[in-house]
């Protein structure tokens, strides 16, 4: 254990702690979400919108800001990395002082388009998935053997997803996962182009707690659900999402397959993933065909319009509420003491 207070130390008043970490704030007003500029060391600034919720409006605001920084471009800004409701900006503090960066960002904020008008290129990508498959069940078995023998999500993660969401069966979970497209709102969560994606149709928005503690092993291509996100594992790795199936490789280091002609990662921001149930054998053939270049992914080039999406949300509001109520009751019962 660390030795508490064993050395001379600057004594810090907590009030200062607050203002020290936040460089600036823009309060919410019509057409302007709240912005908190958080310090993230001397080489990064974290620009955060709203009240830290998963709100797609905020995600599109993040996108508008990122585009705007790229379009200008701002000298001294080295990289930008979007999160769910924030943008991390890496800059060279020797070239671009923090004060000047803040002034530039505040002025960009005034020029950003209303969220309702945002439209982004968005491909629909059809991915075959072997749900409730032997590879992910094997990963769970390893976890039971080496990490934790009993937990609410053991021995069957899909069964746990069903219980937590008030669904009757494994089959129903599988049909819910195919009933909605999943919008990719982050890449690299975790590593190598792994998508952080959210279900677009709130009537099928599954929510489930993550593993505690995490798994040491997840198969490459594993599909997981954690919180209200889904992810696909680009490489064998540790992981914390509930495993529901396995799909194609989404990372190809040597870019042998045509789907990787442009980059070693398959997915882009704002792609919409459409899962399609397939058998284990068919998945294996598809995975092999993909590597040899003979598999053609079904991809449709489309756009995603925030305005259209809002209309859709309005049209399914009541059904979404009904599902959410049932989900809440189930979650209360099945995640008690989790």
């Amino acid at each position: 254990m660390g030795k508490l207070g064993s050395r001379r130390r600057l004594h810090v008043r907590a009030k200062e702690g607050c203002s020290d970490a936040i460089a600036a704030i823009i309060q919410e007003k019509p057409g302007q979400p709240k912005v908190v500029y958080r310090l993230s060391g001397d080489a990064y600034l974290l620009v955060e919108y709203g009240e830290m919720t998963l709100d797609l409006d905020l995600r599109f605001r993040v996108h508008s800001l990122e585009q705007s920084i790229k379009d200008i471009p701002v000298e001294g800004v080295l990289e930008t990395v979007p999160g769910v409701c924030s943008l991390l900006i890496k800059y060279n503090g020797l070239q671009l002082p923090l004060g000047r960066l803040l002034d530039t960002l505040k002025s960009i904020e005034k020029s950003l388009p209303p969220i309702q008008e945002v439209e982004v290129p968005s491909r629909v990508i059809h991915l075959p998935v072997a749900f409730h498959d032997r590879w992910t069940l094997e990963a769970i078995a390893k976890y039971i053997q080496s990490v934790r023998a009993e937990a609410p999500y053991l021995p069957d993660n899909v069964q746990f997803v069903a219980r937590c969401n008030g669904l009757e069966s494994i089959e129903q979970v599988i049909s819910y996962l195919q009933a909605t497209q999943h919008l990719v709102i982050g890449l690299g969560d975790v590593y190598l182009g792994a998508p952080c994606a959210v279900p677009l149709d709130p009537r099928y928005r599954l929510v489930v707690p993550k593993y505690n503690p995490a798994r040491m092993y997840t198969p490459e291509g594993g599909v997981g659900v954690g919180g209200s996100y889904i992810c696909i594992y680009p490489m064998e790795s540790p992981g914390g999402y509930q495993l529901v199936g396995r799909t194609l490789s989404i990372w190809d280091t040597w870019r042998t397959a045509p789907a990787f002609a442009e980059a070693p990662w398959l997915l882009r921001l704002f792609d919409r993933i459409q899962f399609e149930s397939t058998s284990e054998d068919e998945l294996l053939s598809a995975r092999e065909a993909m590597l040899s270049g003979s598999y053609t992914l079904r991809i449709e080039e489309e756009t995603f319009s925030v305005k259209e999406y809002k209309k859709f949300l309005d049209s399914v509001r009541d059904e979404a509420e009904t599902f959410r109520a049932r989900q809440k009751r189930a979650a209360k019962q099945w995640t008690k003491g989790y």
Partner: peptide
Amino acid sequence: IPGPHAAPDFFTP
């Protein structure tokens, strides 16, 4: 450098 998350929103004084 303190942050991105600090007191009093996330941590106690």
